[in-house]
Computed example of a mutant assay.
Amino acid sequence: MPINLTAAAQAAGLLVLSNIFMTVAWYAHLKDLRDKAWYVAALISWGIALFEYLIQVPANRIGYSTLSLPQLKIMQEVITLGVFVPFAVLYMKQPIKLDYLWAALCMAGAVYFIFRS
């Protein structure tokens, strides 16, 4: 099945937005809610994650119309890394590490192998 670039681009755009919500839901409470009980953080995170799912489900449906499931998953993982690194460095004030480059190179290899056929 040939890849419809418009559908793939729509899916990628929605997955970027979805991943922003997901990353905030998963990790922002470590900085912003560390003085709150874990269940308060969990409830707030679930509320944020609801928006992530409202974007992620249509993104995956659009993507699956033109991409194979493994291609869709690798695209998702690359987007996750692309969203997480700036979040970790800029928002969570984590140091930039050369390991981010190595991880990105591994993901580039994964993209190559999953999309080459």
Rank of each mutant, 00 (worst) to 15 (best):
M92G: 01
S117T: 08
F113P: 00
V89T: 07
W46D: 10
I114T: 15
I96V: 15
P86A: 02
L50P: 00
I44M: 10
V85T: 06
I96P: 02
F84E: 05
H29M: 08
K73D: 10
V78G: 15
M75D: 03
C106K: 00
P70N: 11
L30N: 08
A49D: 09
G13C: 03
E77W: 13
R61V: 07
F84M: 09
R116Q: 12
S117R: 14
Y91V: 14
M1Q: 10
Q94D: 13
V83G: 03
L17V: 15
I3H: 06
F84H: 05
V89L: 11
S68Q: 09
I114R: 02
Q76Y: 15
P86L: 01
K93W: 04
S45F: 07
I3D: 06
F87P: 05
W26F: 15
I44P: 03
L5H: 11
A59T: 00
P95F: 03
Y53P: 00
L101T: 14
L105M: 12
Q56E: 14
I55N: 07
I96F: 14
A110E: 06
Y100V: 00
F51S: 13
T66E: 03
A9G: 07
V85F: 05
V89K: 06
P95S: 07
Y53Q: 12
M107E: 09
S45H: 10
T80S: 14
T80M: 15
Q76M: 13
F87I: 08
W46Y: 12
W26I: 12
K36L: 11
R61K: 14
G63E: 04
I20D: 06
A25C: 07
C106F: 15
A37H: 09
K36V: 06
M1Y: 11
Y100A: 01
E77F: 15
K73F: 12
M1L: 11
P70W: 11
R34I: 03
A42Y: 12
D32I: 10
P2G: 07
V83S: 04
K36A: 09
L98G: 12
A25H: 10
A88M: 10
A28C: 04
L69C: 02
F87A: 10
Q71L: 01
G109S: 06
L67W: 08
Q56N: 15
M92L: 15
T80W: 14
L98V: 14
F21D: 03
A103G: 09
Y112R: 02
I74K: 08
K31T: 08
A11F: 02
L67F: 04
A7C: 02
L50Q: 07
F84V: 14
M1W: 07
V85S: 00
K36I: 05
V78H: 09
I114C: 06
L15E: 13
P70F: 09
L54W: 03
A8T: 13
M107I: 05
A12R: 03
D35W: 01
F113D: 01
L15P: 02
L101C: 05
